[in-house]
Amino acid sequence: MNGMDPALKPRLRRRSTFEYVAWVVCTLVGLGILISVATNPNFKWEVVAKYFTHESILRGLMLTIFLTVASMALGTLLGLVLAIMRASSVKPIAAAAGVYITLFRGTPVLVQLIFWFNIAALYPNLTIGIPFTNIGTAVDVNALMGPITAALIGLTLNEAAYMAEIIRGGFSSVGKGQIEAADSLGMSGAMKMRKVIIPQAMPSIIPATGNQVIGMFKETSLVSVLGVAELLQSAQLIYARTYETIPLLIVASAWYLVMTLLLSYPQSKLEQKYSRTTSRLPRNAKPVVLTDPEGAAR
């Protein structure tokens, strides 16, 4: 009618009635929640603001970060050992790793943490030395197993079981043909693992590990039951005095949220980088230059 070229007319997306209704309902509900949160004096936002950068909260945050990094690093290392053991052709080795993984994945972390904290009930004195001789020193387990040690051990041993499964999954994503090719060249087991299996398993292991880091960051809040003054416990210690429970839980939650958001950006980058389609080529691959007929004929 108006003489517009039909070939240039934009093609418009169809919006369903449902879409309009959804917009209205979600906006109304969202606004309602926002107004309620902002106007309800019981949230005590000024208290939240006051404690957000409180010294003991920040110290708790640091401890949370330390626990996350340390237990992830140690757990990944131990998980790698377990995964290699699990893949062993020597039955007892594979079975031992299997039992470990089953035990630690099959029981709650919280229970494990409390268990390690009370390990002295089982072994009050630990003797480190050479068996069947008198050489060695006895250690008082109760003194050794402080809350932070117990937290670190509990989180690490638990994480190792999960990392072992992730790494094992990565190993099994490497094609059988790759292993056969390595075998036919006469590579030893360790060489095969280092040069063929692990490099190729990385693309599936790394993003999953990133997810574990984010999970671990929140999981550390469990060690508050041992009295470790990490982020949550630091908040709890304050509201035990001031009875400002909700505002301090908001402070702790806000920090957890900030940290997980900060971590999820590199995580999504990692996932993109190692996604199936892009992982075929190493980063430093030279671009193909089509100079000869052989190369051009692809």
């Binding site: 094609g175 043909g177 790759q178 090719a181 390595a182 006469g186 030893s188 040069k195 075929r280």
Partner: peptide
């Protein structure tokens, strides 16, 4: 066994080059 294998080359249907 590995030593014996080094004396026999194998070429696979799916090439099995190491992609890394």
């Amino acid at each position: 066994l590995a030593e014996q294998r080094t004396r026999v080359g194998m070429v696979f249907q799916q090439f099995n080059l190491f992609p890394n």
